[in-house]
Design a protein around this nucleic acid. Sequence first.
DNA 1: CTGAAAGCGCTAACAC
DNA 2: GTGTTAGCGCTTTCAG
Lengths: 331, 331
Amino acid sequence: MDRRPTIMDVAAAAGVSVATVSKAVNGRYGVASHTVDHVLAVVAELGYESSLIASSMRSRRTGVIGVLVADFEPFSAEILKGVGEALRDSAYDLLAYSGSRGAAEGWERRSLSRLSGTLIDGAIIVTPTVVNVGTEVPVVAIDPHTGPADLPTVECDSFGGAIQATRYLTELGHTRIGFIAGRPDLRSSIARDAGHRRALADAGIAVDPRLVATGSYRQDAVRVAALEMLRRPDRPTAIFGANDTTALEIVKVAAELGLDVPRDLSVIGFDDVPEASKAAPALSTVRQPMHTLGAEAAGMLLALMRGETPKVTHLKLPTRLVARATTAPPL
Amino acid sequence: MDRRPTIMDVAAAAGVSVATVSKAVNGRYGVASHTVDHVLAVVAELGYESSLIASSMRSRRTGVIGVLVADFEPFSAEILKGVGEALRDSAYDLLAYSGSRGAAEGWERRSLSRLSGTLIDGAIIVTPTVVNVGTEVPVVAIDPHTGPADLPTVECDSFGGAIQATRYLTELGHTRIGFIAGRPDLRSSIARDAGHRRALADAGIAVDPRLVATGSYRQDAVRVAALEMLRRPDRPTAIFGANDTTALEIVKVAAELGLDVPRDLSVIGFDDVPEASKAAPALSTVRQPMHTLGAEAAGMLLALMRGETPKVTHLKLPTRLVARATTAPPL
DNA sequence: CTGAAAGCGCTAACAC
DNA sequence: GTGTTAGCGCTTTCAG
């Protein structure tokens, strides 16, 4: 726990000024090469590393890209892997940040504000609910939740994906299909709801309002909704959960109620997070390409940071149905 | 992209000094409550958020915990989720950092040095190769790679896990069992090698040095090793890869060589990252509890940061064999 | 109760 | 080619 050497320590040990050390370390011109060598030797000997904070405070460029998430949960972790892959060969460090109160409204504004202009040169915000953030650095949003943003965005086709999910259910022969939605104020959530209704309409099935509930992507709310829906005498034979976490919770509730999945109840989710395929039974779902989402956002951000204007600033990626073990024809 | 308001802007708008703003924002004593109210109102109006960097530069406490990784790959992403879960209800922000040259030796020293004492109040380092890092903040290492560290550590039982893997193979009837190791200088890697040999010895099988190679956890090296091993006339009927990434690459090479897994070759890995179960065929492996690893490290770090001395400073968690579709008896 | 002023470690002008 | 100096935005004594 001894004190980390500062640039002053190096300067003193090398017998030069701090300015010279700074120039030597950063490879600036105007320093004799033997001085550079000497300084670098002292740097190595002392194990000096410039403080990211102090330098970023002055220089306004840090070589760090930030990924802002509400929370490190499965979805954002997958995104992060994608961003990491895309940035692996770039010269950028990657910093992922999650505020302590991820759930609180406005986390993205707070995090961005705390980091931008100083610590990071650019940011990727994952599932922000607020997107009109004024910042000093380029920002790309992944799966933004509110209306059309002025921010460049990358997301998957939630509408189309939801159609795939519900259509799959209708094609299996289900007619009583429940839907447990995400947060009603969120864009992707609304799109999934709309897709569900469209598929139902396409199959000539009327929407039963008692078979639609709001889970808000929150475990407790999903549980309440699922319990109520599944205790009905005319309970649905299939439920579409607006994301995998929702769907997994539905499966759990069904099990508690003594219902066999998929015999008594089919369940399908959305996302295909790793947990979906590891669940028992493995969850049928609609896969969104989370790695690609992250990688595309990274590419877009890099372009923005180079001062370019990306040709596509609102990328929408396709989804794919992944039928696994929680779906079957109705009895 | 307008400039973020600084504390000076707030002070000017509120007609007070920056010192007063600082005190009001941070809830320090010695400010009239009506002044506080007024300042806070201005803060809200302007959308001011203190710069994490600037404050950390002065105050030495930031309320941020850092997770340092070489790279955001599957293993570290799982750890991160575990840490995130454990810290969800704490007051700490979580910051995960990966330097641009994650592969380079000494990344952990560099990252830690750049962040510690300034940006973060404590750190969890994932799979560091260097652990004698002198720092100003408490540090916990997960799965450290070198000898007994003076640092508190959390890791899984690599030795026992490797025994499980190889024993499973011998029990299936394999006698020619290859091993593609990780980096020879890494602790967990050495332990897996040792476990493999022990299980072989237990089964009365002599170690054939031609069936042991070093993959260094690097795709290219694994490929070379696997190709060489599998092209031998007396090729092994099973290979144990020191981690899942290694094993997955072995499966790939086998396929290219026209070998059917598991009919012609059994493959088993180590870790059970999400990718293992999603692979086709699904990878048999030894599961290490990555979430728990992360959560335990977080708990330990929190204790350290509170100034406590954790009773256990070197935690070793058990592993579990997960037999899936890449293992079968030899022909 | 409030404000002026001194830095935290570093970089970038600008002198020498 | 090298050193001096002025801040970056903030917190913290210490006066008033």
